[in-house]
Nucleic acid binder design. Structure first.
Lengths: 228, 228
DNA sequence: CCAAAAGTGTTGATACTACACCCATGG
DNA sequence: CCATGGGTGTAGTATCAACACTTTTGG
């Protein structure tokens, strides 16, 4: 008796802009869930590694290049997820510098959109659940891995980094303590450039030294941020 | 074009006894990997949630009842994992009180065995890789979730708990600091019973108050153990 | 000179590390 | 009385939390 289950991949792509966290959604084109927005994703090809399937779907459907991609969880306990054929979905978790992303350049601009995390509509299948799970992962990761930088431009303001943490973790953060902590890791450095905003004192631009982080990580360094 | 990929589940079941960490393996019965030991697992039925598939396979193949079970990772990047048909494996991570487990009661006693973690032979498919990944998860979880108790009998000695941590994390632990830390959580309590070992001073038996932990967890309590 | 955001230090409280001796039992 | 493992306290150090004023620019 042959198995009759399909394997799909879906991606939760997070972006951050204007002190808000966004998720990338596409409009369903086929199937009986057409009316709904959904996560980018689709069926895996027979000879295609899962990770390649996600990259392909992201490329085809949204034309974005992600900074960070990892497997999230496999959703396969609801056997009636799709009413026609059972589909098990391997969900992925992605971060992107949304300032560099031009969705309109994609073929499907009309059907690809950023949604603020607290304005996600009812989605196809169990995609709302998948997003909830991804958000949980993001919040956890922020505190023990330097993934926040993957949501920011390569040169960023310290205040952006701080706001990113406040926004996503929904906590108030003491500016001085936060800066002290991040600086103590010695993985963020000044670029010598300055913000060109017209308001207030000009702010230094910083960059994340990923190579240095990787090297320190090998020597047992642990990135960790806690809050009151 | 129909997809030609199978979905299997595999379980890494950890047990702890005599200051050693064990993994439960079975001897392959079918297929061209017959000569090898492998993780318990098998193909998912069409109408069966993934989690039920794992439980069924564990029941059928090993007859053990696990204390803890969670999804680990989905291995599906090696498209030639199985040379006949592509199989994507959703791996699970399980903990068991091995003192209560009677493997010999299972139908397949000859073909089910505990292997010390550092004496795992070359296994079928990518199962060695899956075990490595599970071990990493176990080590991480020990430090931020009270999963160690799921490897111990319901009443245990403090020295057992301490040894479990030393053994699995391969670190030396200060007995006094460790006890102080665990006790400060107030989730471990005396049972009033004593060990019946004949050597040395009789030792108190403790139990993990899971209900209390769950309640505290809701109020924001975080279990966390660090080491020097 | 005013508004707006950037930048910066200190102090008290808390948690972590290191460390060594006495206790209760069985033989 | 000896061997074996069980059980306990303290002091120094490092980290965390709380807190407010000065600086630089544009208008």
């Amino acid at each position: 008796m042959l198995q009759n289950i399909r394997i799909a991949v879906d991606a939760v792509v997070f972006g951050y802009q204007n002190a808000q966290l966004y998720v990338l959604l596409i409009r369903q084109k086929f199937g009986q869930e057409q009316a709904y927005w959904a996560l980018p994703g689709g069926l895996v090809h027979d000879d295609e590694p899962l990770i390649d399937a996600v990259k392909r779907e992201l490329q085809e459907e949204t034309n974005v290049a992600v900074n960070y991609l990892e497997q999230l969880y496999t959703f396969g306990d609801d056997t009636r997820r799709d009413s026609r054929n059972r589909v098990v979905s391997v969900a992925y978790f992605a971060l992107i510098d949304s300032s560099k992303t031009n969705i309109k350049a994609a073929t499907d601009a009309e059907n690809v959109q950023w949604f603020p995390i607290d304005e996600i509509p009812a989605l196809a299948f169990d995609h709302n659940l998948i997003i909830a799970s991804a958000l949980e992962r993001l919040r956890a990761k922020l505190t023990y891995q330097p993934v926040g930088f993957d949501l920011l431009p390569s040169e960023f303001l310290f205040s952006d980094l701080e706001n990113l943490y406040c926004t996503i973790l929904q906590k108030e953060i003491d500016r001085r303590n936060f800066r002290k902590k991040i600086m103590s890791f010695e993985i963020v450095e000044e670029t010598g450039h300055f913000s060109d905003k017209k308001e207030g004192r000009p702010a230094k631009l910083f960059r994340f030294n990923k190579a240095k982080y990787k090297a320190m990580q090998k020597d047992g360094f642990l990135f960790e941020i806690k809050f009151a």
